[in-house]
Write a protein that binds this DNA or RNA. Sequence first.
DNA 1: TTTATTTGTTAGATACCTCTAACTTTTATA
DNA 2: TATAAAAGTTAGAGGTATCTAACAAATAAA
Lengths: 222, 222
Amino acid sequence: MNALLSHTEENYLKTLIKLVLENANSEAGTNELASHLAVKPATANDMLKKLKEKGLVSYEKYGKINLTNQGTKIALEIIRKHRIWETFLYEKLDFSWDEVHDVAEQLEHIKSDKLIDKLEKFLDYPEFDPHGDPIPNKEGKFKVQHKTTLAEIAVGKSCKMIAVKDNSNSFLQYVVKVGLGINNEIKVLSRQDYDAMMLIEVNGQQSSVSQKFAENIFVVFD
Amino acid sequence: MNALLSHTEENYLKTLIKLVLENANSEAGTNELASHLAVKPATANDMLKKLKEKGLVSYEKYGKINLTNQGTKIALEIIRKHRIWETFLYEKLDFSWDEVHDVAEQLEHIKSDKLIDKLEKFLDYPEFDPHGDPIPNKEGKFKVQHKTTLAEIAVGKSCKMIAVKDNSNSFLQYVVKVGLGINNEIKVLSRQDYDAMMLIEVNGQQSSVSQKFAENIFVVFD
DNA sequence: TTTATTTGTTAGATACCTCTAACTTTTATA
DNA sequence: TATAAAAGTTAGAGGTATCTAACAAATAAA
């Protein structure tokens, strides 16, 4: 029995699960939530009351926010839809890597289980989206990859890019500019002691990237 | 400069253009509009004021409603999106003929010109949707077919189904049950004088259909 | 430990879309 | 043409999602 949630409610749940998963402490705060959704804390607070009323989040006044099992389930369904749509846009409609996110933000709210299941089949059951993030299946299960960042790779070693951490347009466009994409080989040529700037090589193209950049590129060892 | 309209506003425009095109008199009334949108006349009246304010409809108090050029343009864009999505669902995702409408009602509101243009290309620029309705191009132009209904076909003659007039689920499911679909050949075997019930044959299957049914099937002569 | 800062909450207001109930205008009918 | 019916409008209200401004609690700093 999927509760009928508004786009807004769905966006709150999606943001909450991201915060809970990223924070490692498995908790989120009102201000944090509000800033991710670009609303004021007062607004987020109101919505939290509503979501609590619906049994989707658990929290007490002045306490930390968590998703209930039901809330987690719904949040994973939204992430599933988002990533399947991103894959469709990238693979079938020739959208570029950095264009898929914004459109998928809209498409993820379409209410039709049949649609997303048929789309998944059409794409031949993809396990990762164009950014390398895992796609939850109908039961909410997904592949977890051990994630190393480019910043951790030693000088002289090579690795393969598997995902990005930051999904912002500005970052993704930067990644494209450096000539990087999913499954590309990266060789670490040197690293500055002072600021950890790295010189890397991708498909013969050398680029100098910051530590911040390197920390947002997930890789696996060759 | 595409005004940023809400889903609701878009639905009003879409319904208005349908009424205006169907009515032949090129006018619509408040009650008529309201009943098609399943809202009360008071609600429709409020929205009309807003759409007039935005320059999308023209009407005077107690007068008839018309779309402005700008309103027509936007309405055609929504119809274009709806029909392209229907075609996608039917051709690529194996949705059945009678399932596509409801999902397309949601998809038509996705805001991305790039998306719909790429989808159109992916489908190889279709001219008609799965119900036989013409798909407006980017400039709002579409093919007009001279439409004869099955009710007008003489006994003993054959014709080919090209579209349906009624898009309701109950009608479409009935059409499927009779074994009919776009481009099927229909032979009119007999017609009752009393109530115009017709006996037709489709792919070897004989069915008895009412006048109401026949009036909602568009055909061309062989 | 007292104070300052950060974080979270409440109250009151607005815009959107909807409703019901009452009223007005137009159209049809007797 | 007078009246009844249909069509259209207005006023007042409610739910959702948002805001600002003011306040309260928890945490960090002096």
